[in-house]
């Protein structure tokens, strides 16, 4: 569910061959895996379980080290647990949890274009802009600061991307972030080529 159509459109624009699928043969044969997603954490996990994707993705990404990009909820699901709308276990690839943004003076959801502070430049070098589009009420708190690849300030510092070996996740939507987002997607494929 959710933003798969937008991600596909961005990949087509970049001339990157792609298919939307939950089929294990197709996922096993793929060169890269992108997990987009909007909606609640528990619903996202339910969907992955329903199609048997948790074990499959874990095998592909953790054991076989296939390049992986999680977008928005697709990044949050990498955590050990989430709380939307109730406590639910995530895939647990990244130590940490997903909690509601708690800031008195800011409006929730965090919605709009915000500039990220790059910590690990692996995918962010050569971008013409660091403004990306965010739309979320929950955020990922990461245990190991070394995995935080960028942050964004919205009253508090929020993790805007994580990176661990072959795993990359963005809280923002590169597929909705005009040229900066398209450049970032392109560098994900080029760097992992």
């Amino acid at each position: 569910m959710g933003n798969v159509a937008s991600v596909q459109k961005a990949l087509n624009f970049l001339n990157i061959e792609n298919v939307i699928s939950n089929n294990s043969d197709i996922i096993n044969k793929s060169g890269y895996i992108i997990l987009p997603g909007v909606g609640s954490f528990s619903q996202g996990m339910n969907n992955l379980k329903k199609y048997g994707l948790v074990d499959l993705l874990t095998d592909q990404v953790i054991n076989k080290k296939k390049p992986f990009l999680g977008i928005c909820l697709g990044m949050q699901l990498l955590a050990q647990k989430g709380s939307e709308p109730h406590e639910t276990n995530g895939m647990g690839w990244i130590k940490g949890e997903v909690i509601k943004i708690n800031t008195k003076e800011k409006r929730i959801p965090h919605l709009g274009w915000n500039s990220v502070n790059v910590i690990n430049s692996r995918y962010f070098s050569d971008l013409t802009s660091l403004d990306f589009y965010f739309i979320h009420s929950y955020h990922l708190k990461v245990k190991d600061p070394a995995l935080v690849s960028s942050t964004v300030n919205y009253g508090i510092d929020i993790v805007s991307s994580v990176q661990k070996e072959n795993i990359f996740g963005t809280q923002f939507h590169p597929e909705k972030s005009q040229s900066a987002g398209l450049q970032l997607l392109k560098s994900f494929f080029e760097i992992n080529a």
Partner: peptide, 25 residues
């Protein structure tokens, strides 16, 4: 290639699903 909000005539969850499926944010 930017976010899009779509409105008009939404009367059930299927209408929302249809719009999100074709890329409405």
């Amino acid at each position: 290639y930017m976010p899009v909000g779509i409105g008009g005539g939404i009367s059930d969850l299927w209408d929302i699903n249809d719009l999100l499926r074709i890329g409405a944010d």
